[in-house]
Amino acid sequence: MSVVSAQSLSLTFETNDGPVHALKDVDLTIEKGEFVSFIGPSGCGKTTFLRVIADLEQPTGGTITVNGVSPEQARLNRAYGYVFQAAGLYPWRTIARNIALPLEIIGMPKRERRERIERVLELVDLKGFGGKFPWQLSGGMQQRASIARALAFDADLLLMDEPFGALDEIVRDHLNEQLLELWARTEKTICFVTHSIPEAVYLSTKIVVMSPRPGRVTDVIDSTLPRERPLDIRESPEFLEIAHRVREGLRAGHSYD
């Protein structure tokens, strides 16, 4: 059973300036354990697609299942963890209590909660920072904390919406490396929205290239890179070839009308 399966999925927003086709006839299947990147210019519907999976938006056409059930049912089952563009930590909660938030909501007992928090803090390399408030941490650390929060209730699916978009190149490289390690260790399925071609190619087993107006999938590239990826794989010919194909896909779909 595939984790996400979409058939001719469409979503049209009705606005004052007329309908906006955020998604049009999107067909996509994501298998368990894949790392799928969605790449494309603004307005191509990549974030919208992620939000449809998460049941934060309702599609206006087509069908989609998550873990074989409707997105709403999947959300009610708490099938996924969602990492937003900004860390969005609650400023009045310490890092540990931010991570505890989803666990409190599902009603996990306190002792179990504490163990879980320790484990995910270690997973994102924030051991010992549980007692700090968000403002005491750098942007990169806050984003790692938000990933820890998404990992907290141990859903098999991780949805990440440009999580490193606001961070500088060096921190981003570092977090990309950590994310791959985490993915390898936890064997989760990850859907990852990004603007960056190198980021998409470096991380993914599958790259979904999208284009705007209407938002649609123009190319789906299965990566030939090995799962084990040191940072300098980005200079290999294979890497550059995939990056080239992504760039071509983006160019083909991008019309300046």
Binding site: L56, R75, L76, R78, Y80, Y82, G88, L101, I105
Partner: peptide, 14 residues
């Protein structure tokens, strides 16, 4: 609370 903070609660089915 901004959209992100409330969306987060929704993803937790709070």
């Amino acid at each position: 609370p901004d959209a992100l903070q409330t969306d987060l609660m929704r993803t937790y089915n709070a």
